[in-house]
Design a binder for these strands. Structure first.
Ligand code: ZN
Ligand code: ZN
Ligand code: ZN
Ligand code: ZN
Lengths: 163, 163
DNA sequence: ACACCTCCTGTTATGAGATAACATAACCGG
DNA sequence: CCGGTTATGTTATCTCATAACAGGAGGTGT
């Protein structure tokens, strides 16, 4: 039984209140340290990502951007996402056309995701790419970035249905 | 000098003539063995992928589909691509929104790509996902598929410019 | 302050990628 | 031949992303 499961979205809680402010403050500091500017629209998009509990589509962010339900114009959000990705504050999940805030502290890094096909959760983890980098070098490639996306079921969604 | 290089597309030669027919024949046989049908549009899309020397966009395939320059309708090609992916005859490269024929013989497998940002080549290789699968298991995930895409420069494009 | 440059933003419009929905046709087993 | 199943044809629409250009904010040197 339970060929389909319908767990609600969300594995990450989504930040609120002081935790959210703290994360945004930390981002400001990291920007200041590198002469980058966390401007209003960039900060707002990062805030939306941090608040959410699941990967966000660009047009979800566009719709949620304004304080009173006013949407943003697409370039506003896409530019902010480009900035956030460049600085390592956010990642794009290619197989979902969606974005998540970086959950791994520290600077820019190679990202990898475990994506649950059931509840939509996307867990970032620190990948060990030693084997693949060796293969790339052997093939004569100079690798600059790697993305890995694993699809499957998270622990909660693999558990037997309670109903 | 040489901040940009402009090598022509293509690392894979692209199949022609008897090699192409042989590959298509092999695909027919694999389909027959599993009660699947390599119908005309599916065969045509596979042919276009095999002929090409670089990842093909869906709308490139749509434009090239007809024998006399007549384009296909989008669903025709997207359905064929879905079939070819399902059977392991083709792979989608998420970070390019493009498709390649599988270059690794045998049945369905986990794919990984080395993608050259300079010439656009996409080399498929057999990945060793041992480390990542271990990490996924540790996190409680049951992984069904993995895709890995490494960006960088191929051997030819890393070589010093001749000009 | 001023001129200057650079980076960022606002806005309009458009391009690229993918799918929904429904009707028709081919295939296959009985 | 009939009926279920699978695949195709066709129209329309949806989602995702960027080009292009005008204007504003923030620095730097004089
Ligand atoms: Zn991260
Ligand atoms: Zn789940
Ligand atoms: Zn393959
Ligand atoms: Zn190259």
């Amino acid at each position: 039984m339970g060929a389909e499961c319908h767990h609600p979205d969300g594995v990450h809680p989504g930040l609120k209140g002081s935790a959210l402010n703290h994360a945004l403050g930390a981002a400001e500091q990291r920007c200041a340290a590198t002469q980058e500017r966390l401007t209003a629209p960039r900060r707002r998009v990062l805030e939306l990502l941090l608040e959410s509990n699941s990967p966000q589509k660009a047009y979800d962010l566009i719709a949620a951007f304004g304080a009173h339900g006013e949407p943003a114009k697409p370039p506003t959000v896409y530019r902010a996402l480009e900035f956030l990705e460049r600085l390592g504050f956010a990642h794009r999940i290619e197989s979902l056309n969606a974005y998540v805030p970086c959950r791994i502290d520290g600077q820019s890094h190679r990202a990898a995701f475990l994506i649950c096909d059931c509840c939509g959760a996307a867990d970032e983890f620190e990948p060990d790419f030693t084997a693949q980098l060796a293969a790339a070098t052997k093939a004569g490639y100079q690798v600059s970035t790697i993305t890995l996306e694993a699809r499957g079921r998270c622990a909660a969604c693999s558990a037997p249905a309670s109903s």
